[in-house]
Amino acid sequence: MSAAATRTAKKLFIFAIAMFGFGYAMVPLYNVFCDVTGLRLKGKTGEITETVAATVYVDPNRLVTVAFDTNVNSALPWRFKAQQYTMKVHPGVITEAVFVVENNSNATVIGRAVPSVVPTQAALFFNKTECFCFTKQTLTAGERKEIVVRFVVDSKLPKKINTMTLSYTFYEAADSKNVAQSDSNTVKAIDIKS
């Protein structure tokens, strides 16, 4: 094997390692790319302050239907329901929707809700000032809790969209297990049906 061949091989080896790194770099790069190009349509919704929300133009002539969809990951022993299945709102009006979560197990569990909006084009125009999904939720054994989301639909929402669905899925948070262990009730129920 000649020295020149070894040099070629070294360069190619570095290239391979760099491509391995590039695979990982793709994780943040996708988000950066979506932000830079304005192509973010992962169904993720925006977070704004009440003051900003108050400045959104209110369109009294338009009514948009917002439907609510609730899901619980099978690993999480919770019940999760929306108190209202749909709401009719005027774009620009800050509205509050109430949900109920209940811990069916006999241990403390931490859950985390992940939101999404369909149609995905509507997500850009759906903003929240307050949401239970911004933070993790801790429920002690058997606890039942009302949680809220306050949202405003942007009046720039394209005319062809009249209905949007806000969907949440509750998952067990990664640090939930540790809590359950330090809990006095160390036995974690897995009976979801009750």
Binding site: F22, G23, Y24, V27, N73, A174
Partner: peptide, 24 residues
């Protein structure tokens, strides 16, 4: 190498608590 990276992420998601592909 990109495939190797992707499956490594699967491995760490499953066994080491990372959340590359885990919505939760």
């Amino acid at each position: 190498p990109v495939l190797a990276g992707a499956v490594t992420m699967l491995l760490t998601d499953k066994y080491f608590g990372t959340a590359f592909f885990d919505a939760a």
